[in-house]
Nucleic acid binder design. Structure first.
Lengths: 151, 151
DNA sequence: ATATTAATTATAATGATTGTAATTGACACC
DNA sequence: GGTGTCAATTACAATCATTATAATTAATAT
């Protein structure tokens, strides 16, 4: 973990930003809950446990900064709140998401499945792709088994 | 155009909803500006020209209803507002978008490029895909030509 | 006509996010 | 060590998109 904090510290410094205690606490929360998709408020509450004096606005600004530096991905599943995900070490792209319409769970796909599609977009539309986001909506394995009775 | 309005009217009736004048005016705006990606407020202002007595809440409710019935797609490009797109006649899926990071323009791809990817998700993850949304972020043809000087 | 129900309006409320002004903290330089 | 400078933070207010509420209206069936 320290290694990854260090890495992020360097990324910040390379753009002449500092890793302040508040920012570090925020990053640590994101590292600890890497599997989740936390909202700004979620992050705020968790950071508060480590550093009770932190303000919500600071968390927002920190997440915004990390998002600009492509350290985290800011995503939006259509439920009014933005969620923040640490980008996997060295990943050039957003990872993809499988959102279950039954239970609301979110799975991640780290593999990049879009190389071919990206090529098509570049060649046929002349659009230079920098990044992409792909979300599938459907029914996850679990919910297919537990047949949910329709009330 | 009348043909498409009729079609939507039938879709509403089949779920025992009515095509009220307000709803019709809203649908007409969406048809007229099919190429754009209007926010609820955009729609509201345009509908107001036809039917000045309409309220913003009604527009929201109408768009929400049309979205539930899969007549329009509600999308979110990460800029705080939801945008609403008429779904192409008979299309089973969201269409994809190319968002230019320079000029902010949005192009659409109607073709479904994800059949293969969807198969992989179904087979490897056991996830039953119902719908998907894919957005590419990058630089559009226009902006690649007009080299924008970095001030 | 009248009763019933859906739909709409105006307005207020909510909830997420951002702006502001004052304060604090870190670091370079004397 | 003291001081200046500038970024970062805090508490709070403001804003913006969206949703809820209560009263009113329109449409439909009886």
């Amino acid at each position: 973990m320290e290694h990854r904090i260090d890495r992020i510290k360097k990324q910040l410094h390379s753009q002449s930003y500092k890793l302040t205690p508040q920012r570090e606490a925020t990053v640590r929360v994101l590292l600890e809950r890497e599997e989740d998709h936390l909202s700004a408020e979620d992050v705020y509450l968790l950071v508060k446990e480590k550093a009770p004096e932190i303000g919500l606005a600071t968390v927002y600004r920190t997440l915004e900064l990390l998002s600009e530096l492509k350290i985290v991905d800011k995503i939006n599943f259509g439920d009014g709140v933005s969620r923040y995900d640490l980008r996997k070490e060295g990943a050039a792209h957003f990872h993809h998401h499988l959102v279950c319409m039954e239970c609301g769970s979110v799975e991640e796909i780290v593999e990049d499945l879009l190389d071919d599609v990206e090529k098509i977009v570049q060649d046929d539309w002349g659009f230079q792709v920098k990044d992409h986001r792909l979300t599938f909506h459907g029914v996850c394995k679990q919910c297919q088994i537990e047949v949910v009775p329709t009330t």
